[in-house]
Design a protein around this nucleic acid. Structure first.
Lengths: 213, 213
DNA sequence: TATTGTGAAAGGGTTCACAGCG
DNA sequence: CGCTGTGAACCCTTTCACAATA
C-alpha cells in the first residue's frame, strides 16, 4: 500500500473528497466509481485505480459508502490534523490568501504573517499582527510552523525559503514566479499564474494549427 | 512543425523564456541547452526536445543566440501581440491579480473588472471602473475581450463562464475551486490553491512512508 | 570539437478488460 | 447480477545515445 503515488492521483483524490462532501450534503449514502467519474469528468477506471493505491474501500456490486470514503480520503490526505501555516509577504496576494476562508476549514491554520516592510510590521490583519521577516526563524520555532506560503517578490523568495527551511519548515507553497531549489526532504508546490496565462496564450494562438480538429 | 505539443513542454517554454530574458539582461549572447537546463533544473535533452517541436534554432557546436531564441519563444507562445483580458469577481483574489503588474508586461491587458455586488459596481480600481456582471456580454463584445480570469465563488463560476463563452471569450483562467465544463474550442486553465495545499499535506503526511528514501 | 537535433528505448500514467466477490 | 479491484496493454513523455554539422 502507498508505494509511489502519481502526483496527478493525489490531486484527483482532493477532488473526489470535494465531491464526496457534496454527495454527503445531499444525503447520499453510496456512490459508484462511475458517479465520481461523471462528477469529476474522468473515467470510472481512473477513480478505481486512484483509490486502489491505498486499499479497497468499496463493496463489489454496490459501490462506496459516501461518509466512509470521505473520511478515508481525509485521512490519506493528512487532513484530519491541523497544519500550522505562515504567509511570507503581506502584499496583495498574501492578503488574498489570508482572507480565503477555504484554508481554515481544511485545517490549515494561518498563525503568522511576515513582511520586511517596516510600515507593515505591527499592522493587524484579522487575528494576526504582521511580523518582521527578520524575526521569522524565531516565530517559526515558537509557533511550530510547518508550512509557509511564499508571496514575496521573486528576487527574495529563495532567500526566505532557505531561512524557513533551516528553521524547520517542511512544506512550501510558492506563489513567487521563480523556480525554488529546496532539499529533498522538503515538499514544494508551485502556483505560477504567469505560466498558466502564457499556456493559455499559446493555446489560443494555435487554435487548429496544432490540434488536428 | 507543431503537431501535438505536451502541456508540460509549453510550460517549460515559458520558463526558458524567463531565463533567456535573464541571460539577455546579463549581456550574454549565447546559451547552450545545458545552460538552460541547469537554470531550470531539467536536462539538456529535455530542453532540446522541447525546442525541436517547433524547429531548429541552434547552431551545432555553439548553442543558441539568446536574443533570437527569446524572440522565437515569445512568438511561439503568442506573446508578441496583446490580449484583452477581464477579471470576473472583484474580491480579494481579483484585486490581487488586478494589482499584479507581471501580466501587463506580458501583453495581457486587463480592460474590464466585473462584480455582481452593487456596492462595488462603479468603484474605481486604478484605470478601471468595476462593471455590473449583468452587463458582461455587452462589455465583452465592445472591448473585444478574449480571456477572462474567474475569481468568483465556486457556485456561480460555471454560470458566468457559460455566459462569457457565449459572448465570444476563447480562454479562461479559473481560480474558483470547481471544475468547469467548457466546449472544446475554449481553452481552460485552472489554478486551485486548495488542491495544491492538500497535495502538500499528503506529501508531508507520507514522508518516508511512500518514498523509498 | 562542441553542441545540436532526433530516432529509439525507457519510464510512467491511463485505459482496458475481466476475474473476483458481495 | 453489478460493481469493484487489478494485471496487462496502451499511449504519452522523458531520457538516452549518437549521427549530423557549424
Amino acid at each position: 500500500m502507498a508505494n509511489r503515488i502519481p502526483e496527478s492521483t493525489v490531486k484527483r483524490l482532493s477532488l473526489y473528497l470535494r465531491y464526496l462532501r457534496e454527495f454527503a450534503e445531499q444525503g447520499r449514502e453510496t456512490v459508484s466509481s462511475e458517479d465520481l467519474a461523471v462528477r469529476g469528468r474522468t473515467t470510472a477506471a481512473q477513480v478505481r485505480k486512484d483509490l486502489s493505491y491505498f486499499g479497497s474501500f468499496g463493496k463489489r456490486g454496490f459501490g462506496y459508502q459516501v461518509g466512509e470514503l470521505r473520511d478515508r480520503l481525509q485521512q490519506i490526505l493528512g487532513l484530519e490534523r491541523t497544519w500550522q501555516v505562515a504567509i511570507i509577504g503581506a502584499g496583495r496576494i498574501g492578503a488574498a490568501l489570508f482572507g480565503y476562508q477555504g484554508f481554515r476549514v481544511q485545517g490549515f491554520h494561518i498563525v503568522a504573517v511576515f513582511d520586511r516592510d517596516q510600515q507593515k510590521v505591527g499592522v493587524e490583519w484579522g487575528d494576526q499582527r504582521i511580523e518582521d521577516v527578520a524575526r521569522m526563524e524565531e516565530v517559526i520555532g515558537e509557533r511550530g510552523i510547518e508550512i509557509v506560503i511564499v508571496t514575496t517578490p521573486a528576487e527574495v523568495a529563495q532567500d526566505v525559503v532557505d531561512r524557513a527551511v533551516r528553521a524547520g519548515v517542511q512544506g512550501i507553497l510558492n506563489f513567487a514566479p521563480t523556480k525554488l531549489v529546496v532539499s529533498e526532504e522538503v515538499s514544494l508546490k508551485n502556483v505560477d499564474m504567469a505560466i498558466e496565462l502564457e499556456a493559455l496564450s499559446f493555446a489560443l494562438s494555435n487554435h487548429g494549427a496544432s490540434a488536428p480538429r
